[in-house]
Design a binder for these strands. Structure first.
Length: 202
DNA sequence: CGAAGGATTTTCT
DNA sequence: GAAAATCCTTCGT
């Protein structure tokens, strides 16, 4: 089932609905167990906090599309665009369980020692599904990557987001959602204090 | 099992 | 110029 009207709501409302949903990538399917909501211009942790830029443009587009971005010099993460066109909210896919294409997922994620690690973490999940940065903006209803919403809402818990620096990572923004007790949910980690770059003084 | 540090490049100020 | 919605390896208990 794919229901774009359901996704045309703020990401905080959509996030719990994505738990238990299945993302079909290129030969691999993953059942989502952990997500985070980003609320556009009212959210200091969101890429859209300071308005539209070349990078975050698809967040402002039609809901139900994929928003991919490059980060930390080497990783790609994937979001489901939410809220109506013109409003920029999205849900980051943080972790999931491989339910189909296990062999292929293992080939793509050679560093995983266990199957639970194949898609435990946003950049890992992207690799397992065969998603690339160039998949930015594809339609999750008909593209190479598709989203199948769950029939029923899974039970869930919520808390502060992981790895988000600044105010957006505090308890004031408890927009991380997960399925309790699932082995593919990543452990909570607060963002590290900034590393001191090498400078003239020490 | 937990903590710590390094890798590496796009993006925006 | 500096930060960034992360991952992996290594070291310690």
């Amino acid at each position: 089932m794919f229901d774009r009207a359901l996704l045309a709501r703020p990401s905080v409302e959509v996030a719990p609905l994505l738990l238990g949903a299945v993302v079909h990538g290129r030969g691999v399917s993953i059942r989502i167990t952990e997500v985070e909501a980003y609320l556009g211009e009212v959210d200091p942790g969101s890429h859209a906090f300071r308005g539209e830029t070349a990078r975050n443009r698809v967040m402002y587009g039609e809901p139900g599309h994929l928003y991919t971005y490059f980060t930390y010099g080497m990783h790609v993460c994937a979001n489901v665009v939410c809220s109506p066109t013109g409003t920029a909210t999205a849900v980051l896919l943080r972790a999931g369980e491989v339910v189909d294409g296990l062999e292929l997922a293992r080939e793509r994620r050679t560093t995983s020692r266990t199957d639970a690690d194949l898609a435990r973490g946003p950049a890992r999940l992207v690799v397992a599904l065969g998603i690339a940065l160039s998949d930015n903006g594809i339609d999750l209803e008909s593209g190479d990557v598709t989203l199948e919403l769950a029939g029923e809402r899974a039970s869930f818990e919520q808390g502060p987001r992981t790895g988000v620096s600044g105010a957006g990572g505090t308890i004031d923004y408890p927009w991380r959602f997960w399925i309790p007790g699932d082995s593919t949910v990543s452990p909570y980690k607060a963002s590290l204090p900034k590393k001191r770059p090498r400078s003239a003084t020490l």
